[in-house]
Design a protein around this nucleic acid. Structure first.
Lengths: 220, 220
DNA sequence: TAGATTTATTTGGCTTCCCAAATTTTTTAT
DNA sequence: ATAAAAAATTTGGGAAGCCAAATAAATCTA
C-alpha cells in the first residue's frame, strides 16, 4: 500500500542522469555519494541492487552508468520534476529559485496520467522555468542548441534560453538584476581585461561579469 | 534529506481522525489495524511510538484517541488531501471518484506554503469534490449541517451538499445518474413500502432507493 | 462459571536505507 | 618503484515499518 516506494531509487537515477550530463562523464562511487550526500557504503550497496534490477551497470574501471532502461526512468523523473516546476511558477507564482525543493517531493508522486493532464493544463511547456527542456512521455528530450553569452561578438542580439547554473545564489542574482529566461539582449561591449561584458537589456545598460556570462546560455 | 518522512505517521493520524468521526467512537487496535490494512502488531508498535510523541493516547480500556495536538496534525493532512482533490477535479478534470489515490500521495508533500498558495489559486474552496469541508490553516473545520435526503417531507426543495459514503461504487452510480454536489432536487414522492423516493432533478423524475437517499446529505 | 472467541501483546524476523569504521585495492605523485 | 592519497569494499550496526505466530488477557456466551 505504501506510496513513494522507490523514492530512493528515483533519486539515484536522477543523480546519475545529472552527472551524465556533465562534460566529464566518469561517474564513480564517490562522485555519486557526494551528489546524493550519502555514505559511499550506502551508495555501493544501492548500486549493486540497481544493477541487479537492470537500471545501471558498473564498468571494468568502476564507472557507474545508466542502462537505457535506467536512463528512460531517469528521464521520466526529470520530466515530472520540470513539469511540476512549471506549475509552481506559472500557476502558483513561485519564483524560479523557490521551486526546487517542492518539485523534489512532487516528482515522486506516482501517476503518469497526472503528469499528462498537468502537462496539458500547462499548455504543453517545452522547458522548465530555468530553460531546461522537458522530456516527453517516451523520455525524448530536445537538446537546446545554446551558447554561453560572451561567445558571440559585439552587436549580436540574442535571447537567454537556459542557464548553466541553477544554484539559488545565481538565480537570486538574476532575479535582482531582472534577467530571466526569454530576456532579449544586445551585446554592446566586451572587456578584454576581465572578460566582463556590457549588454543592452530593456533599454538599459547592464554589466555582467565573465562568470555570469558563462552561465547564461543563449540562442546565438 | 528524505522527504515524506512521516508518511506512515500521517496515515495513522488520518485513519484515527476518520474513525473518530463515526458515531461509534471507540477505536481499538483491531479497528485501527483494519482501517490501515496493517497487522495488529505493527499498529500496536506504532501507537506506542506516537503516544510517546504526544500525538495520541490509549485509555484505560485500550481505546486509542488522538490528543489535541494529534488531531490538529490530522486536520492538516485532511486539509491537504481535500485541497488537492479540488485541484484535481477543478483544474485537471478528474472525476470525483478518481482523485482519492492521487490525493493520498499529494497530501504527504511537506509545504504548508504550497497548500496556502494552492488554496488561493483554487479560490479558497470550502468543500472538497465530495462536499466534505476543508479545514483552515489552524485546523478549524465548519461542520456542515446536513440531513440525509429522505428525512424531509414531500415537496421540499433541497440541494445535495455532501455524501455519507464516498466509495467508488457509489460515486460511479451518482455519476451515472448525473447527481453531484450542488444538485438541486425537489422531493416528489416517498414510497412507504421500501423507503425509496422520487425526486425532480433537472426537470426529470428520478427514483432513488432508500440506501442511496440515506447517503445523500442535503441542506434541508 | 467454564469454554469459546476476540483482543492485546510479545517475540523473532524481514526489508529498505542509511551510517561509521575498518580494510583492501587502486591510483597518483615523488 | 614506492609511499601517500584516494577510492572501493567489507563488516557490523541502526532506525523505521512491516509481518506471522505464539501467548496472555479480556470478553462473551451458553
Amino acid at each position: 500500500m505504501l506510496h513513494f516506494a522507490h523514492q530512493s531509487e528515483e533519486n539515484y537515477l536522477k543523480a546519475l542522469y545529472k552527472l551524465e550530463q556533465r562534460p566529464v562523464k566518469k561517474v564513480n562511487n564517490i562522485a555519486l555519494a557526494k551528489t546524493l550526500e550519502l555514505n559511499p557504503a550506502t551508495v555501493l550497496e544501492m548500486v549493486r541492487k540497481m544493477s541487479e534490477r537492470g537500471l545501471l551497470e558498473t564498468l571494468g574501471d568502476k564507472t557507474i552508468q545508466l542502462t537505457d532502461n535506467g536512463r528512460k526512468k531517469a528521464l521520466q523523473i526529470v520530466r515530472r520534476h520540470r513539469i511540476w516546476e512549471v506549475f509552481l511558477v506559472d500557476k502558483l507564482q513561485y519564483k524560479w529559485n523557490e521551486v526546487h525543493e517542492i518539485a523534489e517531493q512532487l516528482e515522486h508522486v506516482e501517476s503518469e496520467d497526472l503528469i499528462k493532464r498537468l502537462e496539458a493544463y500547462l499548455g504543453h511547456p517545452t522547458v522548465d522555468p530555468h530553460g531546461d527542456p522537458i522530456p516527453d512521455e517516451q523520455g525524448r528530450i530536445k537538446k537546446l542548441k545554446t551558447q554561453p553569452l560572451g561567445t558571440a561578438p559585439v552587436k549580436t542580439r540574442l535571447t537567454i534560453r537556459s542557464l548553466a547554473n541553477t544554484s539559488d545564489d545565481f538565480l537570486r542574482y538574476l532575479d535582482k538584476i531582472g534577467l530571466s529566461i526569454g530576456a532579449k539582449l544586445e551585446i554592446l561591449e566586451i572587456e578584454d581585461f576581465d572578460g566582463s561584458l556590457t549588454v543592452l537589456f530593456e533599454k538599459k545598460r547592464l554589466t555582467l561579469s565573465k562568470e555570469v556570462a558563462e552561465n547564461l546560455l543563449t540562442d546565438a
